[in-house]
Computed example of a mutant assay.
Amino acid sequence: MKILKFIACLLFGLMFINSGLNKLFQYLPTPELSEELTKVTEAFGTIKWLMPLVAIIEIVGGVLFIIPKTRALGAIVIFPIMVGVILQHIYFAPETIHIALILLLINLWIIIDNRKKYLPMLEN
């Protein structure tokens, strides 16, 4: 189980690192987007600091997620991005939501697995 968790976390982290680096350096070809999604992407592009911020969060969160000692923090850092990914798929690409759901399940698995580390934040 420990090896499975490490492999899942490694792949999860690398996917987010790659996604963040691609937002910054745009080295992967952009897939064909629907007209509606193109408008949304262009709207986000008008906020000049938004995509670099998301990219940095993805990179930092991905690195934290890979390292066992910082994995609990990485899971929390990535979670808001993961919510956005799920919503994006629900509204604009439901045919590929299975990939996003797998990533969400890995993220939730690590959050639940580390729940004791989060309890001090909830205490008075």
Results as ranks from 00 to 15, higher is better:
K48C: 08
I110G: 00
G62S: 09
K117L: 14
A100Q: 02
L24F: 11
Q88L: 09
I90G: 08
M1Y: 14
A100D: 04
I97P: 00
L28P: 03
I97T: 02
S34C: 10
I59Y: 03
L87Y: 14
I110V: 14
I17R: 02
V40C: 03
K116T: 13
D113Q: 12
Y118P: 04
L50E: 06
I7D: 06
L28F: 14
R71E: 03
P80E: 07
R115P: 03
L105N: 11
G74F: 01
N114D: 11
R71V: 02
H89K: 12
I59G: 02
M121R: 08
L21M: 14
F16P: 00
L53W: 11
P52Y: 11
P120A: 12
V54Y: 03
P80C: 09
K2E: 15
L11F: 14
T30Y: 05
P52E: 13
E58Q: 08
I90A: 11
L122H: 09
I47M: 14
F79Q: 03
R71F: 05
L108C: 13
D113W: 09
I59E: 00
W49E: 13
L53I: 12
E95M: 09
M15P: 00
I76S: 10
Y118D: 11
Y118Q: 10
Y118I: 10
L14G: 03
A8D: 02
I57G: 05
N124M: 09
M15G: 05
Y118H: 10
G61Q: 01
L24T: 09
F6T: 14
K2L: 14
P31K: 09
P29E: 06
I3F: 14
S19V: 08
P80A: 09
A100L: 06
K69S: 15
H89Y: 12
T41A: 06
I99E: 11
W49Q: 12
V63E: 05
I56G: 09
I111N: 04
I76Y: 12
Q88P: 02
I67W: 14
P80V: 07
P94A: 11
T38P: 03
L37K: 01
I66H: 04
T41P: 00
V77N: 04
I110R: 00
G61N: 03
F65V: 08
F65N: 01
G45W: 06
Y27C: 08
K117F: 08
H89G: 07
I81K: 04
F12R: 00
L24G: 07
